[in-house]
Design a protein around this nucleic acid. Structure first.
Lengths: 229, 229
DNA sequence: AAGTGGTCTAGACCACATT
DNA sequence: ATGTGGTCTAGACCACTTA
């Protein structure tokens, strides 16, 4: 049985976790490890490269590989789209379009998109339901300069999120999480009290450097996102 | 100049993004791509493996490599510890211990830790400051069963977070984000109004399968975490 | 100048899932 | 049964960075 790069990863991880190799300390170089494991250097390289990717070690040419002095915590959150999220809860998903209007993009949106020029935008407000109860408000702006087709769609049956994925499946994005107080409107739509603390997800999306859409997702009270690492 | 695996990644990414290879569709296999790029299969493999890791394609033995039908969004959030976070804002970091008490762990904490047995725990409440203004409340429980040394530390000068990192630099963790309303106590400590929407970060940490600590980080109003992908 | 990681090659064998 | 990805090997050359 040949050496598996996972064996090497595990060995190194163990030595680090056990404290044998302290933070900041040098880890043996690839040639030595390859000799000790009687394997090719490429195998050690794969192991070390992945450990670096995971944030456990830091590598620099000539300087060697060191145990990270302060661990890097970079949790990965899975962001499913709403329908999947609701279905994963075992609930029946529902969708309702609340408002739809096309017009010139407001200044704050142009700023958000990093644009100087005037463009038209489509503004959509939708409600996502779980077992007929409000689950999330989707307040979305779509650049009609980037996606003129959006204007032909009335979004009465299918949410803009799913439509967008079918049109521009791959894109660059910036996502952020924060907490906001429910205003009267949001409270009415989510069936909670005004002032309630709500979880807000914001996402801006680009495609080939062009701004596509900006969305505010306001989740029902108690929403939580979780990741392990 | 030899073929760089990045060239292959870029080529494939372009074809996918341009829509030449639609979601769900098969991507050429490694042997064919290696032939087309006149490079070793290992090079193509590296490129494809990374694209799969990024969530752009899906690979299965014998079935081949396909463009993901629905894109995977797994943003990575950098979670620095508070002092770095404050300093990155250009502010002066400050720390204050508010409360410290050792005693039997409450039932909810044992549940959180997945324990049946009674243990003792250290409960700490601290305030992190940015330019002398409240920045974040740290409400932490440390298992004295796992880390008896914690009881010897008074945490008056150094925050438990930094101490923990120095003691158990590597661990498994679960992190979650949510929104809560400020209770009277939190409002007083953060200098905001009761009922204000606050961003809550919770983290449970294990080491070698043993529960170490559970912490609630309540950030000042307006806190936001961001990631790009 | 020298040591380290970064990458490529050409070949091989294997594991697995589909056919 | 067969085609695909998964991995290892042994060797090579290169890029970077520190000494």
């Amino acid at each position: 049985m040949k050496t598996d790069f996972r064996d090497i990863k595990q060995y190194i991880r163990r030595r680090i976790v056990a404290g044998d190799w302290a933070p900041g300390q040098l880890v043996p170089n690839e040639v030595d490890l390859a000799a000790r494991f009687e394997c090719a250097r490429a195998t050690v390289n794969r192991a070390m490269r992945e450990l670096a990717e995971e944030g456990l070690v830091e590598r620099r040419r000539k300087a060697g590989t060191r145990v990270r002095s302060t661990p890097l915590h970079r949790p990965r959150f899975e962001i499913p789209f709403v329908r999947k999220e609701v279905e994963a809860l075992g609930s029946v998903y529902g969708y309702r379009l609340i408002d739809r209007a096309a017009g010139p993009a407001p200044d704050w949106l142009k700023a958000q998109f990093g644009l100087e020029t005037d463009i038209r935008a489509l503004h959509l407000v939708c409600l996502h339901l779980a077992d007929s109860a409000p689950y999330q408000i989707e307040d979305r702006w779509i650049s009609l300069a980037a996606l003129p087709d959006a204007e032909d769609n009335d979004f009465s049956e299918i949410g803009p999120n799913e439509w967008l994925i079918s049109v521009v499946p791959f894109s660059d994005a910036e996502i952020s999480f924060s907490a906001i107080a429910a205003d009267a409107e949001a409270a009415g739509r989510l069936g909670c009290a005004a002032g309630d603390a709500l979880f807000l997800t914001e996402r801006s999306t680009w495609w080939n450097g062009q701004a596509i859409t900006y969305v505010r997702l306001i989740s029902r009270p108690g929403h939580k996102v979780t990741a392990r690492y």
